[in-house]
């Protein structure tokens, strides 16, 4: 096994275990911390795919900004971990069965799709993940969506302030 494969399997196991721990943790703060670990594992995958810009943006935006916002809200509203109501066992079991069947169905589908057979992906070569080509594409071909997203941010900011003020 090459070093890339070892890193891939290690990061995948890390991501999946952390994602399961997000669900299993009773305390929401622990869930947030495990989710931050998932995001770091996904950033590791981006680096493995040579998508360096997205790796950094993922850490800054998700692990840095969004999860801090989650932690802030959890600490602000002070959820007691024993006061969280649990769903009935039957509902939980049905949820796990539904999600597991979804996973099984899609895995079976991917396994028999002819277009996916023998396709490999480029790991460390290729320059499309670097800042220079991405910035060039973002500010030439995608400049209109970029400006619209700034308007979206403004409206989200105004909306959050208005909802929070009431």
């Amino acid at each position: 096994m090459s070093i890339i494969q070892i890193l891939f399997f290690a990061l995948s196991a890390f991501a999946i275990i952390s994602a399961v721990m997000v669900l299993v943790s009773k305390n929401p703060i622990h869930s947030v911390l495990w989710l931050i670990l998932v995001f770091f594992a996904i950033s590791g995958h981006y680096i493995l795919l040579n998508a360096q810009f997205l790796a950094i943006v993922n850490i800054i935006v998700y692990a840095g900004a969004i999860m801090v916002l989650f932690l802030f809200v959890i600490m602000l509203i002070n959820v007691k971990k024993d006061s969280e109501p649990q769903k009935q066992f039957l509902v939980k079991l049905l949820g796990v069965v539904a999600g597991g069947s979804f996973l099984t169905l899609l895995v079976a589908l991917v396994k028999q799709t002819a277009q996916m057979q023998g396709r490999t992906l480029l790991m460390k070569d290729g320059v499309i993940g670097l800042i220079h080509p991405l910035g060039k594409a973002l500010f030439t071909d995608y400049v209109v969506p970029f400006e619209i997203s700034s308007v979206l941010f403004l409206s989200a900011m105004v909306g959050a302030v208005i909802i929070g003020k009431k």
Partner: peptide, 23 residues
């Protein structure tokens, strides 16, 4: 690296998310 490995990993993460929303 075969593309299937990435598809399986992402499906697993997505399904864990679905289970979390349901449970």
């Amino acid at each position: 690296m075969p593309i299937q490995y990435y598809i399986y990993l992402c499906l697993a993460l997505f399904s864990i998310g679905v289970i979390g929303v349901l449970t």
